[in-house]
Design a protein around this nucleic acid. Sequence first.
DNA 1: ACAGCTCTAGAACGAGCGCTCTATTTAGTG
DNA 2: CACTAAATAGAGCGCTCGTTCTAGAGCTGT
Lengths: 195, 195
Amino acid sequence: MSLYTAPPSTRERIVLVTARLIQRQGYVGTSIKQIAKEAQATLGSVYHFFPGGKETVAVAAIKHGAKEFALLLEDALRREDDPAAAIEACAADLAVGLRESGWTDGCPVTAAALETLGTDSDIQRACADALRAWEHIVAEKLLASGFTAEDAAEVATTVISTLEGAEVTAQVSRSEEPLRAAGRQLARLLRTYRA
Amino acid sequence: MSLYTAPPSTRERIVLVTARLIQRQGYVGTSIKQIAKEAQATLGSVYHFFPGGKETVAVAAIKHGAKEFALLLEDALRREDDPAAAIEACAADLAVGLRESGWTDGCPVTAAALETLGTDSDIQRACADALRAWEHIVAEKLLASGFTAEDAAEVATTVISTLEGAEVTAQVSRSEEPLRAAGRQLARLLRTYRA
DNA sequence: ACAGCTCTAGAACGAGCGCTCTATTTAGTG
DNA sequence: CACTAAATAGAGCGCTCGTTCTAGAGCTGT
């Protein structure tokens, strides 16, 4: 990685802005015109890069957000040897990021998923893929720490669900505490599996 | 309670329909005209009962949904003496309800909260109130089971967060498993607090 | 009979939606 | 320099949004 990162391309700006807007206002609440304006692009550019229209832009943004959280997760899990401590650190990272954004920049996957529930759309698929990928990352760490395959899968699912829910709770109550509490309780839970 | 329940009034139908639509499509994705049509009312009736417009209808619907889940929670906690078993049963109840609705009828509070994040609106306040009320119900049960005040508060917050998150995960993956897993893991966590 | 309510009914308004379309500018290649 | 494809630019289309407004229907008390 170079010291001087290239300025983001128009396409990248569109994706980044869309991800942020979905975090804050949801999928339905975000218009293509607003995306174009905030990305300093024009309507023509947006439809040039995403001929599939609004849904295509959203899918790209959700995949971007999914990868972003996956990196945060992998980072925390690599820094700490103990998975319990790693998950607690991860929750703390989320809490700090949330506070710094004024409690607005949550998880674009959750937001978009809830608005497109019965739809069988690409958005739903992208959200389901993201959740599965995150669970897989956690499960791998647990397996490496001596968990059985069944325990790892069930605990990983619960870890992701709890982090998701605690993030929403933290946003609504505008406090780090729900995420901090979830981190501590998840750590306690993981430690009950020690040999 | 009589055997013959009165047919719901126009006002009640509006609130019930709105709650269901918010569950499925979110707040922004639900229009007043759709509410009127599905509630078999007219626009005039909606604005007659809710002069404050869309937001007022949504607040009433959210409060209704909040009370509904509070009753489910209190019911499960009353049925079981052991709080761990009670929370697990609660998760199972949610899983069954979700499957029976075709994975569409989740939590209107979460859905509405995420779409109105930075807004300082009555909707945000209603969602925050709902979460606090649910946590309080769980905390009371834990206190009655011998938890310290601090433990009860922190665990109750985590229980609600986990149930919220697991419900979303279950909806996206169209499976009862995330909620079942969350129930089992929460039960395991609660049992670590036994004297 | 009639006034005075609550409730129902839906047309109409301005604003904004997603998207299409035609131009025009920019960048890359021989 | 000439030619082409990529990218930018935004006016305009049909439609739906939330809301307002006027008009009528149903009921009660006098």
